[in-house]
Simulated scan of single mutants.
Amino acid sequence: MSDLDHRVGVREANLVIRNLRLSNVNEANSDSLIEEIDRLFGIDEVSYNIQQGVIHLAYDATHIDLERIEATIRKHGAALHNDWWTQTKEGYYQFVDQNIKDNATHKPWSCHQSPQRSHRKRK
């Protein structure tokens, strides 16, 4: 896939896919919740499986992070499920998102740069 296969602002190199369980989601608030998350800049794809209570997210981690998505979820009266596995995944996802964001702005350096070539002919 290339960057052209995604929404505007989403780069393939920074794309992450997340699956998290939610609680307090019903048919009344699930549609508005998904629509608002889908409108956020950096979101490539979002869906919600109401039978399993799992939200599927694909987003560019340099433009949006899990905390902003969680704020939108809480705004609609829902929350991340309060079990140890969901909390463990959330912590790991936040770590990876921050790492991607930091690496995107980092300028590489090296003390082992190759010297500039002289324009002499080799014998």
Rank of each mutant, 00 (worst) to 15 (best):
Lys89Ser: 09
Tyr59Gly: 03
Phe95Glu: 14
Glu45Ile: 04
Asp44Glu: 15
His106Gly: 00
Asp65Trp: 02
Ile34Asp: 10
Lys121Leu: 13
Arg117Leu: 11
Gln94Asp: 08
Arg68Asp: 13
His81Met: 12
Ile37Leu: 10
Val8Cys: 04
Thr105His: 06
Arg74Thr: 14
Pro108Gln: 14
His81Gly: 00
Glu90Phe: 07
Thr72Asp: 06
Met1Leu: 05
Ser23Trp: 02
Ala58Leu: 04
Leu57Met: 03
His63Pro: 00
Leu66Arg: 02
Ser2Leu: 08
Ile100Ala: 03
Asp60Cys: 07
Trp84Phe: 10
His63Asn: 15
Asp60Pro: 06
Val8Asp: 12
Asn19Ala: 11
Arg18Ile: 13
Asp38Tyr: 08
Asn29Ala: 10
Asn49His: 13
Asp31Leu: 15
Asp44Asn: 15
Leu15His: 04
Asp5Val: 04
Ser110Cys: 04
Cys111His: 08
Asn14Asp: 09
Val25Arg: 00
Asn99His: 10
Leu20Met: 10
Tyr93Cys: 02
Gln87Val: 01
Lys89Tyr: 07
Gly91Phe: 03
Glu12Leu: 07
Glu27Phe: 14
Glu67Ser: 12
Tyr48Gly: 07
Ser32Ile: 15
Ser32Val: 14
Glu45Lys: 15
Asn99Ala: 13
Glu35Met: 13
Val96Gln: 04
Asn49Trp: 08
Arg39Gln: 15
Asp60Glu: 08
Ser30Gly: 14
Ile73Asp: 03
Leu57Val: 02
Glu67Ile: 11
Val96Gly: 00
Val25Ile: 11
Ala58Arg: 15
Lys89Asn: 12
Ala13Tyr: 03
Glu35Ala: 15
Lys107Ala: 12
Arg74His: 11
Glu12Lys: 12
Asp3Gln: 05
Ser118Pro: 00
Glu67Pro: 00
Lys123Thr: 08
Asn82Arg: 08
Phe41Pro: 14
Ile37Met: 00
Glu12Gly: 01
Asn24Leu: 10
His81Ile: 01
Arg117Met: 04
Val46Asn: 08
Ser2Cys: 07
Ile37Cys: 02
Gln113Cys: 09
Lys101Met: 12
Ile55Cys: 05
Ser32Leu: 13
Leu66His: 01
His81Trp: 09
Arg117Gly: 01
Ile73Leu: 06
Asp31Phe: 12
Glu27Gly: 14
Gly91His: 09
Lys123Pro: 14
Asp5Tyr: 04
Ile100Phe: 05
Glu90His: 11
Asn14Lys: 02
Glu70Thr: 05
Leu22Ser: 01
Ser114Met: 11
Asn82Tyr: 00
